[in-house]
Structure formats: structure tokens, C-alpha cells
Design a protein around this nucleic acid. Structure first.
Length: 816
DNA sequence: CGCAGCTTCCC
DNA sequence: CGGGAAGCTGC
């Protein structure tokens, strides 16, 4: 069997694999120096550098500015650094890290020096690249490059910097070929200078990469052991050419499917000639099935921070339901993209018109009624009783006996329905029903919605309800067949003469009434349910609202219940994408209406997190309207407490902070899984938002901030407790941990300082420690045996400021 | 001059 | 430290 299955070639996923073709690099006379018959040595990146980093100018380098971390570095727990490993080699060597220009992967061997400086902090001084790290059998063949920063060389110094770097390399090259050290000749200097000047013209100052070399040193001369390898690109975080693309905010998150909607988006720094707004759609398997671009010109990009564009048309010019797509920024120069945001295409028209057209031209109109002539057309239903009905049609004040008779006569076979009719007739005198004061809908509306700004269609004809009532009553007296009832219902609900200007049907009008017409409403709804299978219950008005929307909006609890009882569709979205549930959480709507709706959601197991066209779920709206009760109900019903609102990426917590809704804020923080770490599109978490909004003179904002902060600190202290608890469970170091610690503590007699700190000063001089190869390992074992806890040893290292060692121990404990 | 990009400065 | 912005420079 092959003992080195993966060693001859580095893993294929390694970004450096293209460098490894054997013998491809004539500059590395590997064969001359290979001491044993080992497979070819090679370098491998264990941890690439982060791909985005802020390059600092020299003038910015005073004080500490974070170092170039490894890609998997985590701010809070584990900091990592760029790291490489030399394999198939067993002699002392050095691994070098220097700064190079980034270029195409397949052209890596042609990459040139970069004019920026890779500086490493060592105490107070900065050391320029190249950085050499010694490796050997004892130390292992891994080199970590920490505390490095990238200094952005100012334009005017670029040539000088290149010359400086090139000269160093040239001298090493001379030593290698001539086996002696000497300065450059005048001619060589000129060559270097010419090269530097040529290079300086085409360097991309906002992208660099790290190059790693492995050398063996003979008589101070560096001989490459293997071909160099390069890290992936490191982009300058501060540049508009390479910086993060981000959509921070948008004023709309939907567009009609025909496109052309003007949208303003705020973005992180972009350059006008180098930015696109891309829309795309993914299918269920994440395959892209459509894309198009927002339409705008240079003039529409405002100061690098805002773009005004028109949406492209969706691939279909007509859609019958919302289509979810994504919107993102795209930078042509390097293909970079922003994080995509949710966006929706919505049908261009409310489909009510379509339905009615079909009905009007369809079966019943031609064969039975002519819509134009209604209500007169009723006459044609039963030619035999034309006269009778006609008279009652024009007389809207039917007496209760008429209705009573109609109700009695209708031959509905469902016993339940009969029961309903009987109870209706039995419990409420019909006389009362009809002689009751004729409250107008307008009066009722003002009664219920005094002071609220909810917009709703104004009913144009108060008489419609009465009219329908009388039509229906008379009609039912004729003992019509089921078919005919069905047609009659269609006519009364969708016929043009019974629809107001805003396309409200009689059901909409009933929804807007309160406490009047209860019995008639029940009767009508049951008829529709029974004979029409409920289809007419969900007819939409000009705003796309169903009767249920209106009943909810008007706080008409009984009608909501009636509609639900006859199984009206509660998922219909109006033209703003609002479901009745969205309306139910608004201020002024009685809580029990919401409760009624929610119980339906629960029974039918329907998703409550529906987004309206404003990009909000009912929960967002509940929080926004400071409705604690609704917030609780929705969350209990399974609403996602961390759902993101689509225009600015706010979670319910953000919204609570923003509205200073203290009760909701407390509730979300204390009783739900709402996460304060969630960031909005502008990368503000709710805490940061609260801090930003805080004004010491404003009690409200201050209180809001205090709540979030208190919650945070109590969570943190809880973390601290967890931390201590975790430590109490770990009684010894793992071998792996000991090895890592020994790499650090064996050096510079650090282990001695640790020993002293642990009160073992008296025995530090004995051979027990000093004579062994890894004194710190012995010390650690000794310390544990002598009753020191892992935590005590860790804390001792904290006081010695051995951050790396502390980190290693923390990591071990956390993984325990 | 005005805009963008570059550099420095500041908290 | 990261973010913001002022001031400078070249087009």
C-alpha cells in the first residue's frame, strides 16, 4: 500500500495545487538539496488570510490596528493567523511570507512583488517583509504569521518601495548564483529601477496576496526547497473598487411584474460606472432561472451611496401570484456581489375584474339574466311569477313576514342549516329586523373608527344591503331550485348593480356594518356556503380586500366569526399584500378578532409569517403598532421572532427599539428567542440601534437603551457563569493541548515564570524540569498533580499576558 | 470649477 | 479598532 496517499500531490481543493506540478519551476533546484529520498517537499496553506482587510497608510499606523487574521478567525473566541506547512522535509528550514500582487490563478508563477508593505509588529518597531520563520523537526513544520498589517504605500513612494524590495531579492539571487554577497552593480540597479517603474504602472493597489517560500540556508545563502505558493486575494476594505458591496435600505421591496417601478436604494460606497443592480430568481433547487438588471444611468447614482433605478420586467408579463426573487449589487470590474435581498414581483392587477368578466359573459348571464337589467332581470327567472316579484323588488321596505316566509320556504336539506334558519326566525322577531333603526354604514364607521387613520373603501350606496335583502327574500319565496339559488347569489353578490364604486359587494358592506343585519348576514353567508361552496365569500374589492379584510379592519367581530364559520379564505392578500391577519394586529382592532383568526391558523396549520408588499409579516406590524397582545399571540402561534423585514432588514427587536415599545421590548428579550445579535441591512443590531438613538434628555430613548443594555449584561454574566462551570468540569490538559502549550511556554523560559506564578519557585531549578526536552509539559503535569486546577493555570497565564496560551486552553475547555 | 479618488486625521 | 470625514490632488 501507498504510505503517502495524499502527500505527493496536495489536496485538489488547495488553491495552490496549480503550483505543484513537479519541476515546473526552474528557480527551485529542489533535487540538489533533497537530503533523503523523500517525495518532493511542498508547501501548503493551512489557514489562508482573510479576504478583506483594511490597508492603512503609514500615517495611520500609530496605535494598534488589528492584525491580518486567518480566514476562519472569530472575533470573540478564536483568533487565527495565516499559516502554512512544509511537508516531506526533515531538515531545518525557514518559511518566508511576503506581499505580492494578486493575479490569475493559472498565471501565479508570473506574479510580481507588491509595492505595499507587510509589516510585523515586534514590540514598538515594525519589521518589513519578507518575514522568515524557522521550522525544524522539533518545532514542527508549521509557520504561523501573526501580528502583521498591510501598509498602503502612497502613490508617490511606490517606485521607491518596489526598488527597495527588488534590491533585497536581487541580492539574494546574486548570492545564490555567485556564492558570495555583493552590492548591485550600477547596471543592475538601473535594471531594477526600470523594472520597478514599469511595474508601478500596473499594480492594483487595492488587492494583494501573500507569497510563501520555503528555503534552506547554507552559509547564509537562501536556497528554495520547493516552489512558492500564494494565498487567495486580500482586498482592501476601504476601497470602493474592492470594498464590500451592500444594499443598506430600499424604499420598496416589490414591483409589478411588468417592471418599471422606480426604486431608491441606499448602498455602501460604489462607483457609478462600475455598478449594476441585478435581479434573479432561483428555483427550488437553487438553480438560477431568470435574471435581469435594474435600469439606470450614471446620473442616477448619487454620490456613490444611492441608486435610483427602474425595475426590469419579470419574465412573464402576467402572473397570478407573488413571485419571490432576489436583488443584489454587482460590480463588473471584479464580479463582486452584495448579499442578495428578498424582492417580490406582484401581479399587475387585482384579479377581481377578470373573474367578473368571466361571469358576466359566461353561463348564467346569457341564459338567465342580463346584468344590465338587474334587478329587473329577476323577472325572467320564473316567468310565472313575474309580477309579484317585480312589485316587491321596487319596494325595498319588505316586511318581516316576507322574509320569514322566504326563509321557511327555501328547501335546503341540511338539517344544520334548517336549524339555523329556525333559530333565526325563532329567536329574533323578523319585524324587529326590518323595523330596526336604519343606521347607516357611515354612522357606524365613525362610531368604530373614530380617530383612526385606517383607509377603507367608502360605501357609495347604503341601500345595497336592503336591496339585496329584499331581492333575496322575494326570491326565496319562490321556492327556487339549488341551481337557481346559486345563480341568484352570484347575481346579488357580483352583479354590477349591487357593487359599489369601489367594487364592494354586499358582503363587504355587511362586513363594515356592526350589530345590524346580523341575522340577514348569517343567512346570506350560510346560503353562499351551502350553494356556492363559499367561492363568493372571497370576492375582492378594488383594493383587493375580501369581506374578511373589511370585517377585521372594521372590528366587526361577529361578522369575522361568521365568515370563518363558513370557511372564508383567510389567506387572501389585498393589493398591499396584507392578509386579514396583518389587519388584525393594527391599533384599534379588538384583540379577540386576532384570537379568532389565529385559532384558524393553528387549526389549519397555516404559516403566519406572510410578507405583505411592504416587506412585513403580521408580527412586524404588531410590534410596529405597539400591540403587545398581538405580538404575544403571533409568537405563540409560531411566528418567527427573528424574521427580517425586507426594506431595511429589521427584526421585531429592531422595530421595538425603534418605536421605543418598552413592553414589547421586555417581552421579546425575556420570553422569546429573539436574538439581539441580528443585524439589519446597515449592520446595526438592536443594541447598537438603541445606542445610536439614545438621547439622554429623552426619557423614552434612554429607557429603551437601558433595557437592552441590562439584558445584554445579564446575558453576558450568564456566559461568564457557563465559562466557569465549563472549566470546573475539565481536570487535566489534553495531550494535544499540552503540545501546543509547550510550543509557546518552552521558549524564553516562559515556563519558569509560570512556575513561579503557581508558587513552584522552589523546585524550578531541579533537573526534573530543566533537563527535559519540554520543561513546560512536565510543569503542567506537575501542577495538576499538585492540585492546581486548569482554571488556576489559565489565570496565571492571563496575568503573564500569554494570550496565545490562554486561547489554547480556552479552546480545549470549550471543546471538552 | 467640480467630482472622484487618494491621503490624512480624528474619535 | 472601525468608522467617518476633512483636506488634498489630479483629471
Amino acid at each position: 500500500m501507498n504510505l503517502y496517499p495524499n502527500i505527493l500531490t496536495p489536496p485538489m481543493d488547495s488553491p495552490t495545487s496549480s503550483m505543484m506540478s513537479p519541476g515546473s519551476d526552474s528557480r527551485s533546484p529542489t533535487h540538489l538539496f533533497t537530503p533523503y529520498q523523500l517525495p518532493n517537499p511542498y508547501l501548503r496553506i493551512r489557514e489562508p488570510p482573510v479576504d478583506k482587510f483594511r490597508f492603512r497608510y503609514k500615517s495611520e499606523m500609530s496605535g494598534t490596528h488589528g492584525s491580518l487574521n486567518g480566514k476562519t478567525s472569530d472575533r470573540s473566541r478564536k483568533q487565527t493567523f495565516p499559516s502554512v506547512e512544509l511537508s516531506n522535509y526533515n531538515q531545518p528550514a525557514i518559511i518566508r511570507c511576503s506581499l505580492y500582487q494578486y493575479g490569475r490563478e493559472d498565471m501565479a508563477h508570473t506574479r510580481q512583488l507588491h509595492a505595499h508593505r507587510l509589516v510585523k509588529k515586534h514590540g514598538s518597531d515594525e519589521i518589513d517583509d519578507p518575514h522568515d520563520v524557522s521550522v525544524n523537526c522539533d518545532l514542527g513544520y508549521i509557520a504561523n504569521f501573526h501580528s502583521m498589517g498591510i501598509i498602503h504605500t502612497a502613490r508617490k513612494y511606490i517606485v521607491a518601495e518596489l526598488i527597495r524590495k527588488m534590491t533585497i531579492l536581487k541580492r539574494e539571487e546574486i548570492a545564490r548564483t555567485e556564492h558570495q554577497f555583493r552590492s548591485l552593480t550600477k547596471k543592475e540597479e538601473l535594471e531594477v529601477k526600470a523594472l520597478a517603474e514599469k511595474e508601478s504602472k500596473c499594480i492594483n493597489l487595492n488587492v494583494v496576496c501573500l507569497r510563501f517560500d520555503a528555503y534552506r540556508i547554507v552559509n547564509n545563502i537562501y536556497y528554495p526547497i520547493c516552489p512558492p505558493i500564494y494565498s487567495p486575494a486580500i482586498n482592501n476594505l476601504k476601497s470602493a473598487l474592492t470594498g464590500d458591496l451592500r444594499i443598506v435600505r430600499m424604499d420598496h421591496c416589490t414591483s409589478p411584474c411588468r417592471g418599471g417601478r422606480e426604486i431608491f436604494i441606499l448602498v455602501e460606497k460604489v462607483t457609478k460606472k462600475n455598478i449594476k443592480v441585478r435581479f434573479f430568481e432561483l428555483d427550488d433547487d437553487d438553480n438560477e432561472v431568470w435574471e435581469d438588471y435594474g435600469r439606470f444611468s450614471d446620473l442616477d447614482v448619487h454620490h456613490q451611496y444611492a441608486i435610483v433605478f427602474k425595475t426590469p420586467p419579470y419574465k412573464h408579463s402576467e402572473i397570478d401570484k407573488e413571485v419571490r426573487v432576489f436583488i443584489e449589487l454587482q460590480r463588473p470590474s471584479d464580479g463582486a456581489r452584495s448579499e442578495p435581498k428578498d424582492f417580490s414581483y406582484i401581479p399587475s392587477e387585482i384579479s377581481i375584474g377578470k373573474k367578473r368578466t368571466r361571469l358576466n359573459s359566461g353561463d348564467y348571464t346569457n341564459s338567465y339574466f342580463s346584468i344590465d337589467e338587474l334587478p329587473v332581470t329577476l323577472n325572467t327567472i320564473t316567468p310565472s311569477c313575474n309580477k309579484e316579484i317585480t312589485t316587491s323588488v321596487h319596494n325595498t321596505t319588505i316586511n318581516s313576514e316576507d322574509l320569514e316566509a322566504a326563509l321557511k320556504q327555501n328547501n335546503i336539506d341540511s338539517s344544520e342549516f334548517d336549524k339555523l334558519c329556525n333559530s333565526l326566525i325563532g329567536t329574533v322577531p323578523m319585524r324587529e329586523l326590518f323595523t330596526a333603526e336604519n343606521l347607516t354604514t357611515r354612522e357606524l364607521k365613525s362610531l368604530v373608527f373614530s380617530g383612526t387613520s385606517i383607509k377603507h373603501p367608502v360605501v357609495q350606496e347604503d341601500g345595497v344591503i336592503d336591496q339585496v335583502k329584499s331581492e333575496l327574500t322575494s326570491f326565496m319565496k319562490t321556492e327556487p331550485s339549488s341551481d337557481r339559488i346559486c345563480l341568484m347569489l352570484k347575481a346579488l353578490i357580483q352583479g354590477e348593480n349591487y357593487i359599489t364604486l369601489n367594487k364592494n359587494t354586499v358582503l363587504h358592506l355587511l362586513a363594515a356594518e356592526i350589530h345590524t343585519e346580523d341575522e340577514f348576514a348569517t343567512y346570506l353567508l350560510q346560503l353562499v356556503k351551502k350553494f356556492e361552496k363559499g367561492k363568493l365569500l372571497n370576492v375582492r374589492n378594488v383594493s383587493g380586500q375580501t369581506p374578511l379584510h373589511l370585517a377585521v379592519e372594521f372590528g366587526n367581530k361577529t361578522f369575522v366569526e361568521k365568515l370563518i364559520e363558513v370557511q372564508a379564505d383567510i389567506t387572501v392578500q389585498d393589493k398591499h399584500g396584507n392578509t386579514p391577519l396583518h389587519m388584525a394586529v393594527l391599533e384599534g382592532v379588538p384583540n379577540d378578532i386576532l384570537l379568532t383568526l389565529i385559532s384558524v391558523y393553528q387549526n389549519l396549520n397555516i404559516e403566519v409569517d406572510v410578507y405583505n408588499y411592504d416587506g412585513k409579516t403580521p408580527l412586524h406590524m404588531a410590534v410596529k403598532s405597539n400591540n403587545l397582545h398581538a405580538t404575544k399571540l403571533l409568537i405563540n402561534c409560531g411566528a418567527n421572532v427573528n424574521a427580517i423585514e425586507r426594506k431595511k432588514g429589521y427584526t421585531p427587536l429592531h422595530l421595538a427599539v425603534l418605536g421605543q415599545n418598552v413592553d414589547i421590548l421586555n417581552y421579546l428579550l425575556d420570553n422569546t428567542e429573539a436574538e439581539w445579535t441580528r443585524e439589519d441591512f446597515a449592520q446595526y443590531n438592536p443594541f447598537k440601534l438603541a445606542k445610536e438613538l439614545m438621547d439622554c434628555h429623552d426619557k423614552q430613548t434612554f429607557e429603551t437603551y437601558r433595557i437592552v443594555e441590562n439584558h445584554l449584561s445579564s446575558t453576558n454574566s450568564r456566559c461568564e457563569i457557563d465559562f466557569v462551570k465549563k472549566y470546573s468540569e475539565v481536570t487535566d490538559f489534553s495531550d494535544e493541548c499540552k503540545n501546543s502549550l509547550s510550543d509557546i511556554l518552552d521558549k524564553n523560559d516562559t515556563w519558569k515564570r509560570l512556575g513561579k506564578s503557581l508558587d513552584f519557585g522552589h523546585i524550578l531549578h531541579t533537573d526534573a524540569f530543566a533537563a527535559v526536552q519540554h520543561p513546560s509539559k512536565s510543569l503542567l503535569t506537575f501542577a495538576i498533580v499538585n492540585g492546581r486546577s486548569v482554571k488556576e493555570i489559565r489565570d496565571a497565564l492571563v496575568s503573564l499576558n500569554e494570550k496565545k496560551a490562554v486561547e489554547i486552553i480556552d479552546k480545549m475547555v470549550m471543546q471538552y
